[in-house]
Design a protein around this nucleic acid. Structure first.
Length: 605
DNA sequence: TTAGGGTTAG
């Protein structure tokens, strides 16, 4: 039977609605049984296996591709040929086969254990195909196959495809609904899904997924535990993170250096009071458990100490690691240089930069950002500008943080014209300003007392639809308070709420400082109550602000009560507490004891 | 496959 004969036969017999229409939904399946003729079947098979698509296209031109595919599926063709035709017609001819046929092809491939092909087909389906709801895919799959194992493999790979194509919401929905349909997922899909969830900062969801994995008895491996622990640490749920580490041990999976490094980093960044003590205890624990700390462990701790205003401990650890033969890297030096600048030790910071160069480590853009910022914090604006110019000359890839840092340095130096010129420069380099860029400029205008320019900038931000953030409000609130408009500033809290911005400790502390500066510490206490109502406990700055406020009004009993409250809560007084506030109280007749408490000196009074 | 460093507000 010749091809020409077939064409004639089917052109004359097929109803018009059965003819091929690109992008169309299937119409009818009334095509006669094409493969009853062995010659035709063998011709089709040959064309598909040799990928002679143009010839095949001519041959099957009269037929509806969906009907043709259905007949391929019903006629015992091998899975590779069926997949070949499916892919060609679906992705190259842009013909949408019904979901049922996709499911049938998938089941066929899984039964043949052709898993890479299943993955690839699902990838293309998720990436380029029509978007179906998760329930329609699940439902269709069930109507095509009652093989629980095969179906589960397909759904598992579907979830993975959703994740790999950035469709995390669909992946999560599939994960949630899989159990209702009797599909069992594996760690192969759940792990990347968890990773994606944590990367997007959806820590609560990550925790739920983990719990659900345990409940459904999906195997959780070491890497997955580490992802879960990382998510909990980033969410600040350190106790839960530790519980998960204990849980993994119970399940026979021993924590490795990544587990410990993740937890140590969690404590360093979100460990609250005594965080570095806890982080250091974890270092000892890991060594006792036979897990060797590596460069990352020490870098994390060194950075933690630096940010905890304890650069001395950071340097001590740095020297210890060198004695152990560990080589510091660029991360170690960047953290230490930042810490030393923060502690006002400019010479030591510059010495470390020289040391890193001596060791053959080239400063990177982060090193320069840290240094420009360090000079700026020390009010060494000329040095900050010179370093920035030097970096420009070197042709290093400046990024938005470099510009934000140097813009901030200029705005702090009161050089607003140059700060604005730098914003123009960054635009000319196609570096897009961020909200931080605007915040640096805004802060500069307010510091200059140029409320008009600040207002214009805010209007420009509004016009350009730049999303203001928490820091923008803190800057505006601070500026209002400094102008003696604390009551007006409080009203901005409502505006923040409308924009779904949650005031931070800093916001409340600024407001309290404002009221205290106005000579009204009692009003500051009402702000404290509002903050506590929002679930935020006073921190060291809160106490410093309030104590200072009451001191300035000579309400020393109130100030002392707050100091005692702070100590009883285990908050460690900082330099400001000691140097400014406590000294003032001692001057006014209080006597310190060995615990740091103050007592009214009744003898001398 | 998992873990570390840089900007703006008190």
């Amino acid at each position: 039977m010749s091809i020409t004969y077939f064409r004639r036969l089917h052109y004359s017999r097929l109803p018009l609605r059965c003819l091929h229409t690109a992008n169309s939904e299937p119409t009818s399946t009334s095509t006669p049984n094409l493969f009853s003729d062995p010659l035709f079947k063998s011709k089709v098979s040959e064309l598909i296996s040799n990928q002679h698509w143009s010839q095949l296209k001519d041959l099957i031109k009269p037929f509806n591709p969906t009907s043709f595919l259905e007949q391929l599926l019903d006629s015992g063709f091998d899975s590779s040929s069926i997949l070949g035709f499916f892919r060609w017609s679906q992705f190259y001819q842009i013909y949408h086969h019904p979901l049922e046929h996709l499911c049938r092809v998938l089941v066929l491939l899984v039964n043949d254990k052709k898993y890479p092909k299943v993955r690839s087909l699902l990838h293309d389906f998720v990436k380029n195909g029509k978007t179906y709801t998760v329930s329609s895919v699940f439902h269709t799959l069930l109507t095509c196959s009652d093989n629980v194992c095969a179906n589960s493999i397909i759904v598992d790979m579907l979830v993975l495809s959703y994740v790999n194509n950035g469709k995390l919401d669909l992946a999560l929905e599939a994960f949630r609904r899989a159990g209702d349909y009797g599909f069992k997922l594996s760690v192969f899909s759940c792990k990347p899904m968890l990773k994606g969830v944590v990367k997007e900062g959806k820590f609560e969801v990550g925790e739920l997924v983990y719990k659900e994995m345990i409940r459904r008895r999906i195997e959780v491996d070491l890497y997955t535990f580490n992802i879960v622990i990382n998510g909990l640490c980033k969410a600040g749920k350190l106790n839960k993170a530790r519980d998960v580490m204990e849980d993994m041990k119970v399940r026979g999976i021993m924590p490795n250096e990544v587990t410990y490094n993740t937890l140590i980093d969690g404590y360093c960044k979100r460990g609250g009071d005594g965080k570095m003590y806890k982080a250091d205890a974890l270092l000892r624990e890991m060594t006792e458990q036979g897990v060797s700390p590596n460069e990352r462990t020490y870098n994390t701790l060194i950075d933690g100490f630096c940010k905890d205003d304890n650069v001395g401990a950071a340097i001590k650890l740095f020297k210890e690691t060198q004695l152990q033969g560990m080589r510091p890297d660029i991360v170690t030096f960047n953290s230490l240089i930042d810490g030393l600048f923060g502690d006002g030790k400019v010479d030591e910071a510059l010495g470390l930069r020289a040391e890193m160069i001596r060791l053959g480590l080239e400063p990177n853009i982060r090193t320069y950002n840290v240094m420009i910022n360090g000079f700026s914090k020390m009010k060494m604006f000329r040095e900050a500008k010179e370093l920035f110019d030097d970096v420009m000359k070197q042709g290093l890839d400046l990024n938005v943080l470099t510009f934000n840092t140097v813009i901030d340095a200029h705005s702090k130096a009161g050089k607003m014209e140059e700060a604005v010129a730098l914003r123009e420069l960054m635009l000319s380099k196609l570096i897009c300003p961020t909200i931080s860029t605007y915040n640096c400029l805004l802060g500069g205008y307010y510091r200059d007392g140029n409320v008009g320019a600040a207002k214009e900038l805010l209007e420009e931000m509004e016009k350009k639809s730049v999303m203001t953030d928490l820091v923008t409000y803190n800057i505006r609130i601070d500026a209002m308070c400094k102008r003696g408009e604390s009551r007006k500033a409080v009203r901005l809290l409502d505006e923040m709420s409308e924009k779904r911005l949650v005031p931070s400790h800093v916001t409340y502390n600024i407001l309290m400082a404002g009221y205290c500066q106005d000579g009204n510490p009692k009003a500051a206490v009402t702000i404290r109550k509002r903050m506590e109502k929002e679930g935020k406990q006073p921190n060291i700055v809160t106490y410093n602000v309030l104590i200072k406020g009451f001191c300035q009004k000579d309400k020393l009993e109130e100030a002392n009560a707050l100091l005692n409250e702070m100590l009883e809560k285990g908050l460690v007084p900082n330099r400001i507490t000691y140097d400014i506030i406590r000294e003032e109280m001692i001057d006014k007749g209080f006597v310190p004891d060995i615990d740091g408490h103050l007592y009214k000196d009744t003898v001398n009074c």
